[in-house]
């Protein structure tokens, strides 16, 4: 009775892209938070403060990748007919360190479930 899911190859490509990006961003996010805290609590000559420019660039890359992640989640939500709460929570949880990994697992499980 349920409609067939989108073609398998395309689906797995989208899911794969999401998984890779979400995982990369999960680690990137931890670095961004650690760096932001370290810059405030360590002395001005610490590695964190001497490499302010590098860290700022990493922060910006993180922001850009996160925007792509949001778009991927939006496409997945539409393709897999996610509930709105699932879509929104997947987007929000991607911003929480460590929890983002769990959110990716959860989204992957949801994507594997038949529509």
């Amino acid at each position: 009775m349920s409609e067939p899911a989108a073609p398998a190859t395309e689906t797995s490509g989208l899911l794969r892209a999401y998984q890779v990006l979400a995982t990369v961003l999960g680690f990137n996010l931890i670095f961004v938070i650690v760096a932001a805290v370290a810059q405030r609590v360590t002395e001005p000559t610490s590695w964190w403060n001497l490499n302010e420019d590098l860290i700022f660039t990493i922060d910006q890359v993180h922001g850009l990748l996160f925007m792509i992640l949001l778009i991927l989640i939006a496409v997945m939500a539409s393709r897999y007919r996610w509930r709105p709460s699932m879509t929104i929570s997947t987007m929000l949880l991607a911003t929480v360190p460590l929890v983002s990994f769990w959110a990716e697992r959860r989204a992957t499980r949801a994507a594997h479930r038949p529509v």
Partner: peptide, 11 residues
């Protein structure tokens, strides 16, 4: 559908 007995998964 005869009723709403079979909910659509996403809902």
């Amino acid at each position: 559908a005869p009723s709403d007995a079979e909910p659509v998964a996403s809902l």
